[in-house]
C-alpha cells in the first residue's frame, strides 16, 4: 500500500458517499445518471467475486463490501425509493453499446481464460467507460449541480491517483498490469474535459454549465 493508492481509495469512497448523501438529504436523484450507477454496480459485483476465493487483508475485504453495498444502495434509491425524482428522459445513453463490446473485448484480451479472470477483465474495461452515461446526461442538460460535480471530481481523481500508484509500483515493486494501466488511462482521459471545467468554474464558486 502506498500513499497514491490509499488516497485514491479514499477519494473513491468519498465520491460514492457524496452521491449517496446528496440523494438522501435532498430526497432526489435529479441530474444523476441511473445508468452509470447500474454500470458501477455491475463493475463492483463482477470484480469482487474474489471476496469468496482469496483473502488479501481486512482493509481489502471491507472496502470491497462497502463499495458493493453502497453502490447497490444508490441504485435502490434511484430506481425504487426516489424513482419519481429520477430524470429518465435525460438519461438516454444506451448501455448495451458499452456492455456488449466490453464483454467481447474481455473474452478476447485477458490475462487468463478462466471465468473469474474474464469477469475481472470485463469489470476493469467496463469501469473505464461506466461514467459515459453520466457525462452524456450533463452534456444533454448543459449543466450539473455543484454537489454532482464534486462527486465526479472525486470519482475521476481516484483513477488518476491509481495511475500514480502504478508508476510507483512499477519502479519499487516490479508490479505491472497492462490491462489495468491501459483501462485506467482511458478512464482518466474521459474525465479531462470535466476536470478542466471543474477547475475553471466550480473551484471558483461557479456552477458547472457548458458553453452553449
Amino acid at each position: 500500500m502506498n500513499i497514491f493508492r490509499l488516497v485514491g481509495d479514499l477519494s473513491h469512497l468519498l465520491a460514492i458517499f457524496v452521491l449517496l448523501l446528496k440523494i438522501w438529504k435532498s430526497r432526489s436523484c435529479a441530474g444523476v445518471s441511473g445508468k452509470s450507477q447500474i454500470l458501477f454496480a455491475l463493475v463492483f459485483i463482477t470484480r469482487y467475486l474474489d471476496l469468496f476465493t482469496n483473502f488479501i487483508s481486512v482493509y481489502n475485504s471491507l472496502m470491497k463490501v462497502i463499495f458493493i453495498a453502497s453502490t447497490v444502495a444508490t441504485v435502490y434509491l434511484m430506481y425504487i425509493k426516489f424513482k419519481a425524482t429520477y430524470d429518465s428522459n435525460h438519461d438516454t445513453f444506451r448501455i448495451e453499446f458499452l456492455v456488449v463490446p466490453v464483454g467481447g473485448l474481455a473474452f478476447l484480451v485477458n490475462h487468463d481464460f478462466t471465468p473469474l479472470e474474464i469477469l475481472w477483465t470485463f469489470s476493469i474495461y467496463l469501469e473505464s467507460v461506466a461514467i459515459l452515461p453520466q457525462l452524456f446526461m450533463i452534456s444533454k442538460t448543459g449543466e450539473a449541480e455543484t454537489i454532482t460535480s464534486h462527486y465526479l471530481f472525486a470519482l475521476g481523481s481516484y483513477r488518476a491517483l491509481y495511475l500514480l500508484n502504478w508508476i510507483y509500483r512499477y519502479y519499487f515493486e516490479g508490479y505491472f498490469d497492462l490491462i489495468a494501466v491501459v483501462a485506467g488511462c482511458v478512464q482518466t482521459i474521459l474525465y479531462c474535459d470535466f476536470f478542466y471545467l471543474y477547475i475553471t468554474k466550480v473551484m471558483w464558486g461557479k456552477k458547472l454549465s457548458l458553453p452553449a
Binding site: 488479501i56 500508484n165 505491472f176 497492462l178
Partner: peptide, 10 residues
C-alpha cells in the same frame, strides 16, 4: 516485470 496472480488492488 510480472503481473501478480493475486489481485490486491480495489
Amino acid at each position: 516485470r510480472k503481473t501478480p496472480e493475486k489481485k490486491d488492488e480495489l
